[in-house]
Amino acid sequence: MTTESDSHLGEAVAARIERRWATLSIVVVGVLVGMAIFIGIDHATMPQGHVETADPKTLHLTGEFIESNLGSAMEADGSVTVRAIGQQYSFTPQCIVVPSETPVTLRATSADAVHGLLIEGTNINTMLVPGYVSELPVRFKAPGEHAMPCQEFCGIGHQGMWAKVKVVDKTAFLRMMASRRRLSCVD
């Protein structure tokens, strides 16, 4: 038999425990939201802030992703725009060349399935989703060569989908760019 005071005691214990668990849940949610804000501000990951669309079936007909417009382009403000596409089973251009210590805008999309664009040794990592343009503002610190494998299973030949990124000294890049409108390091 429980007495009146026993049941009051029980209620008080239950209320205390419930309050603690509720506080803990709120703290967990708060930490998660805080983490999302921190990595967004700090650019630890680079979630894209806007949406742009492109028809994957007609990329080769018109617009900025036609074959002759892919690769690195010099902008009026001194920055560089790199355009690339992922398709089953290669990236075009196969070898991307960019200058070091220069703001670079990477714009890429997919012509068929979902592909992944990852540049080894950097925090550049995004999905290429058919229908959408992925855009990343990036900056390469030092000259060097990076592998750029497809990081999202895109079909039966996925493991054979690799490109290269060559970061060169800014003056060397300008020299290479001098006679060209679009640049890549495909031989």
Partner: peptide
């Protein structure tokens, strides 16, 4: 709007046209 995913038009840029004919077939 931008964060909620309303599509935005691509920035204007000059497009380098090819100096050779490329395939114009749309494949599905």
């Amino acid at each position: 709007c931008s964060a909620a995913g309303v599509p935005r038009a691509a920035p204007q840029s000059s497009v380098q046209q090819p100096d050779f004919k490329t395939s114009s077939v749309v494949l599905t």
